[in-house]
């Protein structure tokens, strides 16, 4: 009913049908969200909430490939990025809350780093 709502979404590729390079992460992959703060360096538009930076989570699934909001926000030609649903435990993030409660958040691939097996214990 609101076709103009998401112009960035209009340029989506469904999973598996993308001309985009193969997605880097499989479901179940343990990932680290970059502990990066571009907003400290100058004007930017990012969709990775502050509370997840530097946190580890688990890739739930690939949602598709989308034009990067970081480019679209400035009218720049937008690179296409894989977007994942990533699952986090709530309690370690806030040092409070209910054990077992979780957060499920859309995060673009360039914000994620793989966690090697040796670091899995963290």
């Amino acid at each position: 009913m609101t076709p103009a709502e998401g112009t960035s979404a209009a340029a989506s590729d469904p999973p598996g049908k993308s001309a985009f390079a193969a997605p880097r992460f499989e479901p179940g992959a343990r990932v680290l969200v970059l502990d990066d703060w571009p907003e400290r360096r100058g004007p930017c538009h990012i969709r990775t909430p502050h509370y997840l930076r530097g946190r580890t989570g688990t890739v739930q699934r690939l949602l598709g490939c989308f034009a990067s909001p970081e480019d679209l926000a400035f009218g720049r030609p937008a690179s296409r990025r894989a977007l994942y649903h990533v699952l986090f435990e709530q309690q370690p993030i806030w040092n409070e809350g209910h054990c077992g409660d979780e957060l499920l958040v859309e995060i673009f691939e360039h914000w994620l780093e793989p966690i090697e097996a040796t670091k899995k214990a963290i």
């Binding site: 960035s8 699952l87 209910h98 499920l104 859309e106």
Partner: peptide, 13 residues
């Protein structure tokens, strides 16, 4: 029952 909070940060609704 566990709560899974979904923060709608990007292209899906």
């Amino acid at each position: 029952v566990e709560v899974r909070v979904v923060d709608s940060t990007a292209d899906y609704r």
